[in-house]
Nucleic acid binder design. Sequence first.
DNA 1: AGGCGAATGATAATCATTCTCATTATATTC
DNA 2: GAATATAATGAGAATGATTATCATTCGCCT
Lengths: 131, 131
Amino acid sequence: MPLIPVRLTRNQQAVLDGLNQQAHPISAQELYSLLRERQGIGLATVYRALEILRLRGLAQSRVGASGESLYSPVDHDQHYLTCLHCGQSFPLDHCPVQELAAQLQPSMSFKIYYHTLEFFGLCEPCNQLIE
Amino acid sequence: MPLIPVRLTRNQQAVLDGLNQQAHPISAQELYSLLRERQGIGLATVYRALEILRLRGLAQSRVGASGESLYSPVDHDQHYLTCLHCGQSFPLDHCPVQELAAQLQPSMSFKIYYHTLEFFGLCEPCNQLIE
DNA sequence: AGGCGAATGATAATCATTCTCATTATATTC
DNA sequence: GAATATAATGAGAATGATTATCATTCGCCT
């Protein structure tokens, strides 16, 4: 599902481009240091652009180790198995909800743009430790 | 899936009890003001207890409007449709991932305790506004 | 070119969360 | 039961992400 189309300013476009170049979700601060050298953008502007893009369907998804929000363009969306003990995340190669979302959609008055799905538990090594 | 069993202190048990009484996910701060009057617990202790419970399978799930984490006991887990524009959340009455998780489980060396699933998009009224 | 509203950047303010450290409770050993 | 080790607690400081403020600048329209 593409973003809702809007006219973007140069900075907002730069933020979107920056996100599109990432293989993984990235934090606002990381995006800031990336773009600051590339074109001298302010931190507040990065946050504002992300908020605007969020309202247009950009995924604000996973919460990083230190509690920050991570952002990713919708088509890069990816789901994870995350270990409660060591915090490591293992990406899932297939999204089991895609079809479900498509089925769900027509039956309700809510326009779905994207979803987040994350499994939590214990990875093999940590599971051994805990026993 | 029940929490991994452990011996809990009085305060930790109080935090778990407090969560169990909630119908919806709740923030650490809310839990704190709830428990403070009930038994004079410190804010740091609430956070520490939540961290301990999290490692045992308590769901730290949705991110509230102001960016805080919300917590809920696993068996209350609940999924949402959240509107990107007005922020309102609409609970789903059925979890479409439950069976999938059960199928997924045996094929991998990862012990799943719970999952989070949230759909984002536009609710009917907001969708009209945006058009 | 002039004017207007939105966007920007620097920085201060806010707010959730974590850290520090002295104190207290709990468990263990004798 | 007393002595001691270990973990838990609370108050408040510190941190770090995010948001608000406000003066300045930009983009667009006439």
